[in-house]
Computed example of a mutant assay.
Amino acid sequence: MTNLRADRVRLFGFLQDPGTQPRFWERVSDDVDWTVQGTHPLAGRYHGKEAFLDATFRRLAGVLKGGAKLEVEQVHVDGDITVAELYSTSTTNEGAPFTNRYCWVCRFDGDTIVEVRAYLDSAMVAYTVLRNETAR
């Protein structure tokens, strides 16, 4: 289990820099079932990696300087389920810190993420996305 946990910590660590994020996305199934909980502009159920990326990370890239940057706070592994607690180190286009926290409950099939339920601060996302998209 220790090697599996170390692998998952390393995997989620790729999210801290947009330059290393492709290494994370390589381990996400092309037909992932990804649900972002909440009532904000990024919330929804996405069928497929590209649909999720278009609606979330690529959209955030337009409102966050340098894109979304997520650091690992905790990783919990139990069989094919990994829970990753992450926090944002991003800055909005306005120069404000985007200090959001995330909890992703991920189901793996082998080394590949096939399903995710993501939880975050809906109010912060709504405020940041709507304010910064209209400011452009």
Rank of each mutant, 00 (worst) to 15 (best):
Y102D: 04
E73D: 15
Q21T: 06
C106D: 08
T82K: 09
G95I: 09
G79N: 11
A118N: 10
N93A: 09
D31F: 11
F14Q: 07
D111A: 15
Y127V: 12
Q16F: 04
L130S: 08
T134H: 05
V32Y: 02
D33N: 13
V63E: 02
N3S: 14
L130W: 05
V129D: 01
Q37H: 14
V9D: 08
V63W: 00
G44Y: 03
A126H: 13
D111G: 14
A123L: 12
S88T: 02
V9M: 12
F12I: 07
V28L: 11
M124F: 00
R45N: 12
W34V: 15
L60F: 13
F24P: 13
V36A: 11
P97H: 01
T20E: 04
A96L: 10
S90Q: 09
L60C: 05
D54E: 14
H76T: 09
L42A: 13
T89M: 01
E26C: 10
F14W: 04
V9H: 09
V72L: 11
D31E: 15
L15P: 01
F12D: 02
E50A: 15
F12K: 07
A126K: 14
E26V: 11
L120F: 03
R58M: 10
V28H: 09
R45L: 11
P18Q: 02
M1R: 13
E71Y: 13
P22H: 00
L42K: 07
L86N: 00
V129Q: 06
T128Q: 01
D80T: 11
M1E: 12
R136P: 12
L64C: 10
T128L: 04
F57H: 00
F52H: 06
G38W: 02
D109E: 13
G38L: 06
D54P: 02
R101E: 08
D33E: 14
T56N: 11
G48A: 03
L4A: 15
A61W: 00
D17Y: 05
Y87M: 11
A6L: 07
K65P: 02
G13Q: 09
K49F: 07
R23A: 11
F57S: 01
G95W: 06
V9A: 07
L86E: 01
A43K: 15
V75L: 12
T82I: 12
T99N: 13
R8Y: 11
R23H: 07
H47M: 09
A6P: 00
E133Q: 11
R131I: 08
M1S: 15
N3C: 05
G67H: 06
Y119C: 04
F24C: 12
E50M: 14
V125Y: 00
H47W: 04
T128S: 12
Y119A: 05
R131F: 03
R117Q: 13
D30Y: 05
A61F: 02
R131A: 14
S122T: 13
L53Y: 10
H40P: 02
L64P: 02
I81N: 12
H40Y: 03
E94T: 03
T39Y: 12
R5F: 05
R136E: 10
G66T: 04
Y87V: 05
C103Q: 03
I113Y: 01
Q16K: 12
C103S: 04
A61P: 02
V63C: 09
H40W: 07
R58D: 08
L42Y: 04
N132G: 01
E133G: 06
E133S: 08
S88C: 07
